[in-house]
Design a protein around this nucleic acid. Structure first.
Length: 486
RNA sequence: GGCUCGUUGGUCAAGCGGCUAAGACACCGGCCUCUCACGCCGGUAACGGGGGUUCGAUCCCCCCACGAGUCACCA
């Protein structure tokens, strides 16, 4: 009997979607969708101190932008709601108390101060909680409870033996029970801890595959002990290798803010396309059988399989991400490209019409991010101040003298053009070349320099003249001529 | 420090006992060319170390080294 796969993405509303979280969400989605399963969104807001206004919207927006559609969640409901943990607060207490009654958990009245002091003296007790309240006499517990003493509920962990679980990507993992401290299930504010709420919710929501970063690997036995205490079936565990960032000194550590733009929104603001981010992070820790690299989300879902998940951590590489972005841009239809680029075109040409297709044709193969556009075409808006020796180019066989000749020859020809189209400009200049008896470059180099005012330009002389328009082109060529004559 | 996991070029990675150890990014050449890109062609570059097992180890086992993660009333 194969039950329907159900995975869940359970972020905390922190107002920030880290790419590590996003990748976890992506893999959860892919694991579900690659087998026709369900992908559930659950908001884990049990830490009231870290609650951030509007953070849930960030989560919705991010998922929407990358196309990870959840089948159940706070906004769309579902069979197993509510999907926000703060709205389930009452349920956890009941389960925690059930364990207390069964003798599998107990009330702990230790103060924060005592616990902190315990931490200081790590060496003696092994670093963990000393189970001070584990065996308090019943009467004393009743008395403290009646007095309204603040308390938490902790689970009794086995003192001896070991716990083993099987992870789909890492294999069997065993941890000695003495490493496990009596974990807190219910906090003194009545909220469950992450670990506890997770288990309860995953069970109640019938989650079949628990997918998360492998920073949770060593705490998984605690989960199993909880499932065991309730007599529930344990889910399939899929731990994902960490995404690392490169530090200044060359070392690596878990990707975090100090590594640069590591939030989804940051990356988008930097000019990376949402679909590119998805494509790239899918390949961090996962590899398809055929080694393909370019995937849409639905293609990922078709090709995904858990056995392609790697065990070793992967370093987030902005160079590769940038390459992906460029590939996606180049693969766009020109129409699509123009649509996406228009806001940036407008930064340079706020008003009026321009030959957008020509502009697109020179930019599309050259940019890796749309955000590069304004700077790249700034010379079209304003002619840079440039030195005359830009006209000198050995390969094109140009010097100050013949450059002036070339401009003198080109100007009247261009002036006489009836229509200012790319073809017309092209043909007129190419026609002029044999008349002058020079090589293409000898004519085109000075024309391009005069038109652009810089040595390196996107596109060639024809495109630049075309985009500039007739008046501006002629103005610039005459200016160039003047510069050469001076 | 204890525990857990990991270790193939600078990076992502294929490999799952026998291969000249793929591919991609980056880098370096070349071609194309009015510059720069794109595109195409080519190149540099890797199995952390030591023991086993085996006819034979990148691949299986052990030890070491290194790296990372984790040890909260945070998730």
């Amino acid at each position: 009997m194969t039950q329907k796969v159900r995975t869940r993405f359970a972020p905390s509303p922190t107002g920030f979607m880290h790419v590590g979280n996003l990748r976890t969400a992506l893999f959860e989605y892919l694991i579900a969708k690659s087998s026709g399963g369900d992908f559930v969104l659950r908001i884990e807001d049990t830490d009231q101190e870290r609650y951030v206004e509007g953070a849930v919207e960030v989560i919705y927006n991010t998922l929407k932008q990358v196309g990870l559609k959840h089948d159940e969640g706070p906004d769309i409901g579902g069979e197993y709601g509510p999907y926000v943990q703060s709205e389930r607060k009452g349920m956890y207490k009941q389960y925690a108390e059930q364990l207390v009654q069964e003798g599998k958990a107990y009330y702990c009245f230790c103060t924060k101060e005592r616990l902190d002091a315990l931490h200081e003296s790590k060496e003696e007790n092994g670093g963990g909680y000393d189970r001070h309240c584990r065996n308090l006499p019943k009467e004393e517990v009743e008395k403290l409870l009646a007095a309204g003493t603040p308390h938490v509920i902790r689970q009794k962990m086995p003192i001896e033996g070991s716990t083993t679980f099987n992870d789909v990507v890492y294999g069997p993992i065993t941890i000695e029970n003495k490493e496990l401290e009596d974990q807190i299930l219910l906090k003194s504010d009545g909220y469950p801890t992450y670990n506890f709420a997770n288990v309860i919710d995953d069970h109640l929501m019938k989650i079949t595959h628990v997918v998360r970063g492998c920073e949770y690997l060593t705490s998984t036995p605690k989960y199993n002990l909880l499932y065991e205490a309730f007599g529930w079936d344990v889910p399939t565990y899929v731990h994902l290798p960490l995404i690392m960032g490169k530090n200044e000194d060359g070392s690596v550590s878990k990707l975090s803010k100090r590594h640069g733009s590591t939030g989804f929104a940051d990356l988008v603001a930097d000019g990376y396309l949402p679909e590119v981010i998805v494509n790239y992070i899918a390949l961090l820790g996962w590899c398809p059988k055929d080694n393909r690299e370019i995937f849409t989300l639905s293609e990922l879902a078709e090709n995904f399989s858990i056995d392609g998940i790697s065990k070793s951590p992967a370093v987030f590489d902005y160079d590769k991400l940038l390459w992906f972005n460029g590939e996606y841009i180049r693969a766009m239809s020109q129409e699509d490209f123009i649509g996406r680029a228009m806001p940036y075109f407008r930064e340079v040409f706020p008003n009026g019409d321009r030959p957008w297709d020509v502009l697109a044709s020179i930019l599309q193969p050259r940019i890796s991010k749309f955000t590069e556009i304004p700077e790249m075409v700034a010379f079209l808006k304003e002619l840079p101040d440039y030195p005359a020796d830009f006209f000198v180019n050995k390969k094109s066989k140009t010097n100050l003298e013949n450059s002036a000749d070339m401009l003198r020859a080109a100007i009247p020809v261009l002036e006489g053009l009836q229509s200012w189209t790319l073809d017309a400009i092209h043909d007129s200049m190419m026609n002029l070349v044999p008349q002058l008896g020079v090589k293409n470059g000898t004519l085109l180099w000075p024309v391009r320099i005069a038109a652009a005012g810089q040595v390196v330009t996107p596109g060639g002389a024809f495109e630049i003249l075309c985009i500039l328009g007739k008046d501006e082109s002629l103005r610039r060529l005459n200016l160039g001529l003047k510069k050469l004559n001076a």
